[in-house]
């Protein structure tokens, strides 16, 4: 790579030696103390200039795209929470899980309550599952126009709600 660059550089110098003469002018060089440039990150600069955080959440109208995006993250975090709690319970609780399932059954919570519990478990998983397909399709470069993003967004939402209701009532 260095060799390549040097070769092109030499070529350039040779080509340009005539035109370079046009720019020749007297220059006085004066040594001065080296001042290192201020190292500032993107966030740092924005904070110093008082710029708002991007995206500017307080002035943006809530749009389907942004809402579905943050919901994917939220459901992912909720599911991770379920996994962590399940794992902790498996280690801490003394009886086998059949015992606790039996306890809940004997509590006779009523169909609405059981539907609610199942929905709380199923909805985040199904949302994350169906929307995950959308994410993976985007990652292959498909369905990326605004029109398609909205179309797949509404479709995903309908499929998620329908499948969550069916599975919770099962």
């Amino acid at each position: 790579m260095a060799l390549l660059l040097r070769l092109t550089g030499n070529q350039l110098l040779r080509h340009q030696s005539k035109t370079l003469c046009k720019f020749v002018r007297p220059v006085t060089l004066k040594p001065s103390q080296y001042v290192p440039p201020v190292q500032m990150g993107h966030d740092e600069r924005n904070m110093k200039l008082g710029r708002p955080q991007s995206p500017h959440l307080t002035i943006y109208k809530p749009q389907l795209t942004a809402m579905l995006s943050i919901s994917h993250r939220a459901t992912g975090i909720v599911l991770a929470g379920y996994a962590v709690m399940f794992s902790l319970a498996a280690v801490w609780l003394e009886c086998p899980i059949e015992y606790y399932i039996e306890q809940i059954r004997c509590a006779e919570l009523g169909p609405a309550c059981i539907f609610g519990i199942k929905f709380t478990l199923a909805f985040p998983l199904l949302y994350h599952f169906w929307n995950g397909i959308r994410h993976l399709l985007w990652d292959t470069g498909r369905f990326l126009t605004i029109k398609e993003v909205y179309l797949t967004g509404w479709t995903m939402l309908a499929v998620t709600i329908a499948s969550a209701i069916v599975l919770s009532g099962y």
């Binding site: 399940f86 498996a90 280690v91």
Partner: peptide, 21 residues
């Protein structure tokens, strides 16, 4: 979490069967 889930799978009925029940 990974340890706990594997422990559950190997000492109890497994994640799949647990949720089915």
């Amino acid at each position: 979490t990974l340890g706990g889930l594997l422990y559950f799978n190997h000492t109890q009925i497994g994640i799949g069967r647990a949720f089915r029940q």
